[in-house]
């Protein structure tokens, strides 16, 4: 295979993982925008999506679609419980205590999954077979199409939700100004809960569609979560197109770096990008800087 074909191949798989990072990034941004919290347990929602689907499929013998729905619902329930049990009881929440508590929750979830389902990697079969499609000399897996399709669907759906429904608009209002939102009668507490629900559902969906490509295990959430965060930071923590672009750029760079330089340093590439962005453009790649008002 010549270099060009190889590069096309890397870009395709980069786009697929990038789409996943974008979804996870969006799920970070949804919680951040309505609560100001960076949820360090976000990656665990992603992991739960994959692991629960496999459980529903293999043990409960559910058909694939039902298994996916069950897994997303299951993860959403965890997200709901998480907000109720760990975030809401916290009095005088400081950024520091929120960081510590979400880290605590993340290792707790990871630990419980490890006890329930063990440490082994688990495999989810691809949704529609493994016969590769040939495009421009590169191969495209059917699962890639699933990923692209679901990602586009989610982005369109979330755009519709945030701009055209009452709840979505209320959540956006909270992200602009919580006090004002409260004054016009929006229940901020409910919006926070809702943001955890949507975010965990979104995260788990990302986990479900990536699982056939990468396999899954109790500890995959950490890396996926961090890379999703990286995508969100690149997009300036917005819940829009910036994050999607961020995810795709990250996924592609990572895939190219792993293919052309060394696969061992694949994760290091993502984190170098993360650090560079935090140092040089903490407001995101696509936004202009503004002075913070005191």
């Amino acid at each position: 295979m010549d270099l060009l074909n190889q590069i096309t191949q890397f870009v395709i798989s980069g786009l697929a993982t990038g789409a996943i990072y974008a979804l996870i990034g969006l799920s970070f941004a949804i919680i951040f925008n309505s609560t100001g919290i960076i949820n360090f347990a976000q990656g665990e929602f992603v992991m739960l999506g994959g692991v629960m689907t496999i459980f529903a499929l293999n043990v409960l013998k559910l058909p694939l679609l039902a298994a996916v729905v069950a897994a997303v619902l299951g993860t959403t329930a965890v997200g709901l419980a998480f907000e109720r049990l760990a975030i809401r009881p916290l009095k005088n929440a400081t950024p520091l205590s929120l960081i510590i508590i979400t880290i605590g929750a993340s290792i707790l979830i990871r630990g419980v999954v490890m006890l329930l389902w063990g440490k082994d990697t688990q495999v989810l079969p691809p949704f529609s077979g493994n016969t590769p499609l040939e495009i421009a000399g590169a191969t495209l897996l059917p699962q890639h199409l699933w990923i692209f399709g679901v990602t586009i669907l989610v982005i369109v759906a979330s755009r519709l939700f945030f701009h055209h429904t009452i709840s979505g608009k209320a959540m956006r209002a909270c992200s602009f100004n919580r006090k004002a939102a409260n004054l016009v009668g929006i229940s901020v507490g409910r919006m926070v809960l809702l943001s955890f629900v949507i975010s965990s559902a979104l995260g788990s969906l990302a986990g479900v569609i990536i699982a056939p490509l990468t396999m899954t295990a109790y500890d995959v959430g950490v890396m996926l979560g961090l890379k999703g965060f990286c995508a969100a930071i690149m997009g300036g923590m917005g819940s829009g197109l910036g994050t999607v672009l961020g995810g795709i750029i990250l996924g592609t760079l990572e895939s190219l770096g792993a293919g052309l330089i060394s696969s061992g340093y694949k994760d290091a590439i993502a984190f170098l990008i993360l650090l560079l962005i935090l140092f040089l453009r903490p407001q995101g790649l696509f936004k202009k800087g503004e002075t913070e008002r005191v």
């Binding site: 009881p89 916290l90 929750a105 290792i107 630990g111 006890l115």
Partner: peptide, 19 residues
């Protein structure tokens, strides 16, 4: 392997109840 669960619980509970 239970230790990871215990750490998680400790972090969450301490932050809420014994900051």
């Amino acid at each position: 392997d239970y230790d990871i669960v215990v750490y998680g619980l400790l972090l969450v509970c301490m932050t809420i109840y014994l900051p």
